[in-house]
Nucleic acid binder design. Structure first.
Length: 355
DNA sequence: GACACGTGGTG
DNA sequence: TCACCAAGTGT
């Protein structure tokens, strides 16, 4: 018998059994009951992709990675450029660099098998407190507590915590840990995150159909929509830059590999200036550069960028930086989004013959 | 603890 | 429109 005024894992699991979302990396509660366990490689890959990223954005990337690299050993043997290109557009590119590092550590030091507990997982590149707990619970059914943005929100509301994040994190973690069950921890971890993603949403939470509506203090107090509180964010400055897109007469484009550290690290991009208040021009070669009438506008995590795009048709020449990639080698989809925006503007220009 | 680090969807 | 938001990690 249950007391409706106390939130229990059992009530949430009952809801999850009826409402679990179908996702390509997930083993649903019914198959799990039949002893089916998810592939740790797929759990790891999906969890890394899902860091700060929506399910909708991840789905196609996940399928492409699994089709191209079905096992962690396949991924460990991949070329860096291929993995970075396949990740292009998903953002937070350090994840892709660490993904490869992690796959190679698992292949070289763990015999191709992921550690099956939180502490071992935490040692791996790109696996932090959240992801270690997620893999340990979902893939290995260990009773670890997952605390992501969903769980923070659910706990803040359930217990009506008004302390702003990130200061409230330890308290919310403790509250989440107190609810984590010994039975079905993998399903529970997914259930509490599903609840946050579908019912206990950031705006307009659907409290009326929530399995924890009765014990929820924020619902009682009418504060659900205002929680969790967060410290105010800094305003984003606007920076400016210049990108140079050179097309050779054989159709090859001049591109460069960005350094591993820093913004868009390890990704392909157009040569260009720094992105600053007032950038210095830095053309990669002498040519008849012409500026496009429109700029590429893009917003990163901490600044807005207005990118002036210069284009030129060039003959065979040695550029000061980067290398010409012929059409058979260059996929525009290998570019991070800001570089693809610049390319889209340039394509319209190249397709319009001069007067 | 603070900051760097992408992108697309949303109200 | 634009600020906010998303299954965070590394330094």
């Amino acid at each position: 018998m249950r007391d409706g005024t106390v939130a229990t894992a059992a009530d949430l699991l009952d809801w999850y059994d009826r409402n679990a979302r179908v996702m390509p990396w997930r083993v649903g509660p019914h198959d799990r009951r039949d002893g089916v366990r998810p592939d740790p490689y797929r759990v790891w890959l999906s969890e890394v992709m899902l860091q700060q990223t929506t399910v909708a954005a991840v789905r196609d990337y996940f399928h492409r990675f699994i089709a191209r690299w079905p096992t962690v050993l396949d991924l460990a043997a991949a070329e860096d450029a291929d993995v970075m290109g396949e990740w292009a557009g998903l953002g937070y590119y350090a994840r892709a660099r660490n993904l490869l590092k992690c796959a190679r550590v698992v292949a070289d030091q763990h015999g191709g098998t992921f550690p099956d507990a939180r502490e071992g997982l935490l040692q791996l590149p790109g696996i932090g407190p959240y992801t270690a707990s997620a893999i340990a619970s979902i893939a290995f059914d260990r009773p670890e507590t997952v605390v992501d943005g969903n769980v923070e929100r659910v706990m803040a509301r359930l217990h009506d915590v008004h302390t702003p994040l990130p200061r409230a994190k330890p308290e919310l973690t403790a509250l989440a840990a107190a609810l984590t069950p010994q039975a079905r921890p993998g399903d529970y971890a997914q259930a509490v995150m599903d609840l946050g993603a579908t019912i206990c949403t950031p705006r307009s939470p659907a409290c009326g159909i929530c399995p924890w509506r009765d014990p929820c203090l924020a619902r009682t107090n009418g504060t659900a929509a205002d929680l969790p509180r967060k410290e105010p964010k800094k305003p984003k400055p606007t920076r400016h830059g210049i990108a140079y897109i050179a097309r050779r007469n054989d159709g090859a484009f001049l591109l460069e590999r960005r350094p591993d550290k820093g913004l868009l690290g390890g990704m392909l991009g157009w040569p260009g200036s720094d992105w600053t208040d007032t950038p210095d021009p830095a053309p990669p070669m002498q040519a008849d550069w012409r500026a496009l009438p429109a700029q590429a506008l893009h917003t990163f995590t901490h600044f807005h960028l207005r990118l002036t795009v210069m284009v030129a048709d060039v003959g065979h020449a040695n550029p000061q930086t980067g290398q010409f990639l012929p059409p058979a080698t260059f996929r525009p989809s290998d570019l991070p989004t800001v570089m693809r925006k610049a390319f889209d503007l340039a394509r319209a220009e190249f397709d319009t013959p001069p007067d």
